[in-house]
């Protein structure tokens, strides 16, 4: 075909299509609606079977077992399917410290269980080790190219003798007692679970230190140390003989359900090493689960006392909670 003929041919095609549409648009619309109806039906059938049912997750357990190594983080994509995975794999494979982790940086390996062609964005940058397609599930083993080396996990050590807790007002110091206490929690509008055991301070029941879980700005779980500041003075968490590394790194926040109203006073967290202030973190309502990192390079290699001092100007509903590690 000569090049010059092409526009004419194109015009002819358009003209014929246009004439056909003018003559037949009503019939085409009828057919289009009927096809749309059948297509929607077909798509409904497809989507209703697209995602595996909980029983299929349970049946996946032997396959997952073969791919798991000790300490492997299980990541589910999309995230909404995670309850099915927790049902199937239980606490041994998906313990609270994994499910409510602060971030993924310290994990060496992850097993991504993916459905519906989804991928976990948090594993971007990890190296793919192996991939197994079972039809309904895609299981991918990932390795972290630069796993963070954690020298000391403050939350994991939050018990005697490593930790002592006190409320300090000027020179006055009142110790908080570690032991079993009554577990309590609210409902939707209540406080997170007050755990047992915990460091109980004298005063209101919220004045304690213990491990709990709060929700972040995406309503995702974050495991942390409850450290509600007292009405007056400071809540002091003192960890003895901490191996110091390059940094103290962590996250802090308040249950977002309350923080989002942005009506509370800022909460301050001061970090001291060997009696020296190394960093100060201020949490303002609405910021959500927020990271901090302070250099401790000048103490690196030493065993030192580390203090976390929590305070606020107005303690109403300051359900402060933080997590920290030495790296």
């Amino acid at each position: 075909m000569a090049r010059a003929e092409f526009p004419a041919l194109f015009r002819g095609l358009v003209g014929r299509a246009s004439a056909f549409w003018r003559a037949q648009w009503q019939l085409l619309l009828v057919l289009g609606c009927a096809v749309a109806g059948l297509l929607e039906w077909g798509l409904h059938v497809h989507f209703s079977r697209a995602a595996p049912a909980p029983e299929e997750w349970v049946a996946l357990r032997p396959t997952v077992q073969q791919l798991l190594q000790r300490g492997t983080l299980i990541v589910v994509a999309p995230r909404w399917a995670e309850p099915n995975a927790r049902l199937a794999f239980g606490d041994d494979w998906m313990p609270l410290r994994h499910v409510a982790r602060a971030d993924d940086s310290s994990f060496e390996r992850a097993l991504e269980i993916s459905i519906l062609g989804q991928h976990a964005a948090e594993l971007e940058g990890w190296q793919l080790e192996s991939e197994l397609d079972t039809g309904r599930f895609l299981l991918r083993r990932w390795t972290n190219p630069q796993p963070a080396r954690v020298l000391y996990d403050f939350m994991g050590q939050a018990q005697p003798p490593a930790l002592s807790v006190s409320v300090e007002k000027g020179d006055a110091r009142e110790e908080c007692r570690f032991g079993k206490a009554k577990v309590s929690n609210g409902d939707l509008h209540g406080h997170p679970t007050f755990p047992s055991p915990r460091y109980t301070c004298s005063g209101p029941d919220w004045l304690f230190v213990g491990r709990t879980v709060i929700e972040d700005q995406n309503y995702q779980p974050r495991s942390c140390l409850w450290a509600h500041p007292p009405a007056r003075g400071e809540l002091v968490l003192r960890f003895d003989a901490v191996p110091i590394g390059a940094t103290i790194r962590g996250y802090a926040g308040l249950p977002y359900f309350f923080e989002r109203d942005e009506q509370g006073s800022p909460v301050d967290l001061a970090v001291w090493v060997a009696g020296e202030a190394v960093g100060h973190y201020r949490h303002v309502d609405g910021e959500g689960w927020k990271p901090f990192e302070f250099s401790t390079a000048r103490f690196a290699g030493q065993l030192q006392e580390v203090e976390f001092r929590v305070m606020t100007a107005r303690p109403w509903a300051r359900e402060f909670c933080f997590q920290a590690e030495v790296r």
Partner: peptide, 28 residues
């Protein structure tokens, strides 16, 4: 926004594993 209630259960019960999931088309 109710996820916080589930977090309360985890800490109180000491488990993250439900014994049953009621799902619609695979969605819990």
């Amino acid at each position: 926004h109710m996820s916080r209630v589930e977090h309360m259960i985890w800490v109180d019960y000491g488990t993250t594993a439900p014994v049953h999931v009621g799902a619609f088309d695979g969605v819990p």
